[in-house]
Design a protein around this nucleic acid. Sequence first.
DNA 1: TTTATCGTAACATTTTTTGTGACGCTTTTA
DNA 2: TAAAAGCGTCACAAAAAATGTTACGATAAA
Lengths: 158, 158
Amino acid sequence: MNSRFSTAVHILTLLASTPEERVTSEYIAMSVGTNAVVIRRQLALLREAGLVESKGARGGGWALTRTPERIRLSEVRAALGKEASFRMHRNEPHPKCVVGQNVRQALEGVYAGAEQAVMASLKGWTVADMLREVRLAAQAAHATAGNGVKRTPRNPAG
Amino acid sequence: MNSRFSTAVHILTLLASTPEERVTSEYIAMSVGTNAVVIRRQLALLREAGLVESKGARGGGWALTRTPERIRLSEVRAALGKEASFRMHRNEPHPKCVVGQNVRQALEGVYAGAEQAVMASLKGWTVADMLREVRLAAQAAHATAGNGVKRTPRNPAG
DNA sequence: TTTATCGTAACATTTTTTGTGACGCTTTTA
DNA sequence: TAAAAGCGTCACAAAAAATGTTACGATAAA
């Protein structure tokens, strides 16, 4: 994966933070600091996974299809496809090298296990968790700026 | 991370497969199908982590510092540094957006957990495991080519 | 019928990763 | 002691991947 997962979480948290109204890709783009098309590309993937829905035309925009409590970050990762955190080296190994010819196959098992572990970990977080963490952090930052008090946000995942 | 982890495992497995003799970066490069400098760069990292040692000059080359049973893939990942499987988006979020300003911090917790999960998974594999898997795969391939018989390699990790 | 949106393709740019050549240093060995 | 075979590493080149941009069609609300 690249930074797309980060962006996706950013987007979903933003949508979660304004449950009453649709948000346009243009607006999201400003918030994230990028171009609307980039955002639409991401949202297209999330929509395929059934996490968000869009409405075209005037007054349109994007919204979550479920409450944020019911969107797990493991689903977000799945939505972004197999963009490979764990990537094989693509070099052509020497044809006579037994290791080179077979190490990929061996690695596949390793990667499958690691990917499962990641998904299990991400399953412990929801978009609602993220929104809460964000708000806590914001509060803390504000408090610090104001009077030096700082709170430690609670960590809900395992 | 990129494909460096894959390459590193390839290299270490290769070293494990010839315990009696040192292997030159040139040779490894041929096996992997790349340039010797690339290999040396990788090996430099693995050396810093104490997994391999090199000897310059004629007759020199690379060798493992321990038996392959005692090198866990989690150590390999650690050796390659924090090259981020889980990467933040680097866009500058809009200064007024609460989500944008704080989502990174929230994500850090998520990523820390995921990284731990990956490491725990990789800890279940050693270089010796990889070598065994490679040999099983090679045998299977050979058997298939010869007479159609195929074996399923055992999967040792959890 | 104008306007605000999405959808998407084509192209441009930037960033990251990988590869290459060159050259100095070290140790073995003839 | 000089040649040879290694490593170590820098600077640069090339390739690949990711991200950003422009443009334009389609659609529905106003």
